[in-house]
Design a protein around this nucleic acid. Structure first.
Length: 197
DNA sequence: TGCCCGATTAACT
DNA sequence: GTTAATCGGGCAA
């Protein structure tokens, strides 16, 4: 039986938590799957929202670990983070992609995809391939900002086998773009973008 | 106050 | 390859 991720799991360096999340299962209201791609954002990192201090938007980043931080991206999409490190560190892991395993019909519906097998077969790969798509598929918005990860409606389960974790530079940023703080499941077809060899 | 930019995505050429 | 959609934050004035 998979072990539930506790608050202690998140109360560590963001650079330890991020790779350990690869292969873990994430469910929101029973819908979700295996985490295959994340990125680490440390408060000393110019690309982190917490870099310039607390604001109303990033307030939960300055709170205790093991909580969600949801923000609006480009005025359109929602992005989900897990707050890590001891309280006040204001560091978090961005969840960038999951392999959908539970609640496929609900995810396809929210993402506006056909339920017919002939069409969705090739589309399931894109259901949760990217932080914005993932939140749309799971129905996560700012209404879920600041929620505990070790209690319903969330359920997080540790991976049950060893995962081959790929590392590379983060996507879509301009500040500290050279830092290799993107982690993913090597070879997964559910990544937002493959890792270079 | 106003202007520019961004941890994105889909729909274009 | 480019662009539009759209809003919070940072910073100049």
């Amino acid at each position: 039986m998979p072990k539930r991720l506790t608050r202690a799991f998140f109360n560590r360096s963001v650079h330890e938590v991020a790779p350990d999340l690869i292969g873990a299962t994430m469910l929101f209201k029973g819908v979700g799957g295996r985490i295959v791609e994340v990125e680490a954002y440390h408060h000393t990192d110019p690309a982190a929202h917490s870099f310039r201090g607390p604001t109303r938007r990033n307030a939960v980043m300055f709170g205790p670990p093991g909580y969600t931080y949801v923000y609006r991206s480009y005025g359109i999409h929602w992005c989900l983070n897990f707050v890590c490190e001891p309280e006040g560190s204001a560091s978090a892991v961005l969840i960038r992609a999951i392999e959908p395993t539970a609640g496929l019909a609900a995810m396809r519906r929210r993402r506006g995809m056909s339920q017919r097998r002939s069409q969705h077969r090739n589309q399931d790969r894109l259901l949760c391939a990217g932080p914005g798509r993932l939140c749309e598929a799971l129905g996560i918005t700012d209404a879920q900002n600041g929620l505990a990860l070790d209690a319903p409606p969330f359920e997080l389960l540790a991976r049950t086998s060893v995962a081959e974790v790929a590392v590379g530079p983060r996507i879509g940023i301009t500040k500290a773009a050279d830092k290799p703080w993107r982690y993913g499941l090597q070879g997964s077809r559910f990544l937002s973008k493959p890792f270079s060899p």
